[in-house]
Amino acid sequence: MTVISMNSVHTPVAPQTGVQPMVSFRDVHKSFGALEVLKGIDLDVMPGQVAALIGRSGSGKSTALRCINGLEKINGGELTVCGRNLRARDFELRDLRKEVGIVFQSYNLFPHLTVEQNVTLAPRKVNGLDAAQSRALAAEVLEQVGLSDKALSYPEQLSGGQQQRVAIARSLAMRPQLMLFDEVTSALDPELTGEVLRVIGKLAAGGMTMVLVTHEMAFARQVADLVVYMHQGRVWEAGKGTMLDDPQTVELRQFVGSGL
C-alpha cells in the first residue's frame, strides 16, 4: 500500500513519484446553473489508498465523489481517474464505469431481481460471463460481504444493512479498481451501520482503493489514509486521520467540535 504523508493544508497533492494516482483532481470546478459547488479542487488518491471526504452538507463532497465516475460532468480543471482523463475527446464513460464501482446511500438495488441476479446482471451483460461463471462470482462476492445465505432472497426481504452489503457485492462483482461510497450508512439505523462499516474496513485492509463520503468520523479516522475536509466547495484541510485531533483551521475545529 502506498501511503504518502500529506499533512499540508489545502493541497493534498502527491509529490512526484513513479506511481500514478488512481484519482487526480486538478483545479476542478463544477457548477449547477449559477451555483458553483466545486471551486477548484486539488486532490490525489494513490492506488491502495482510502480517502474519506468529510464536511457539512452542501460542502461539495458528494458532488466531488459523483464527478469521479462521471455522474456529474466537471466544468473546469482536469480530472484523471484510473489513468483516463475525463475531459479527453476519446474518453468513454462506459469504460470508466467498468473500473469504478459506486455504492449509494439509498442502496438502489434492483427490486425485481434476487440478490444473486442483482450481483450478476452487469457481469453477465457487460463482461459476458456465462451462468456457471456468474454463479461462482456471486458466491465469491456475497461471501466477502457475509451474505452467502441470501443469494435467492429479494432485496425487500433484507434489512437495510444487508441491502447495502448486497450493493457493495454488486459493485465488487465488476472487479473494480476503485470503489466509491456515497454516505452509505446515512440511511441506516445505528445498529446496522456497524456491519456495513466492517465490510468496508475489510475491503480497505485488502488493499482496495476507495473514496468515501462519510459522516462517521471515528470510522474515517480509523480506516482512511487521507482525510479530506471540504468546506464551501474547496478542500479546506487534508491529511491523515490524526488531523482531526489537531485541526489547523477554525472551520474544521468547529466541525469536529460539533460532535458529528
Partner: peptide, 8 residues
C-alpha cells in the same frame, strides 16, 4: 443511475 454505474 444504478444501471449506468454498472456500465450497462
Amino acid at each position: 443511475e444504478a444501471g449506468e454505474c454498472l456500465a450497462l
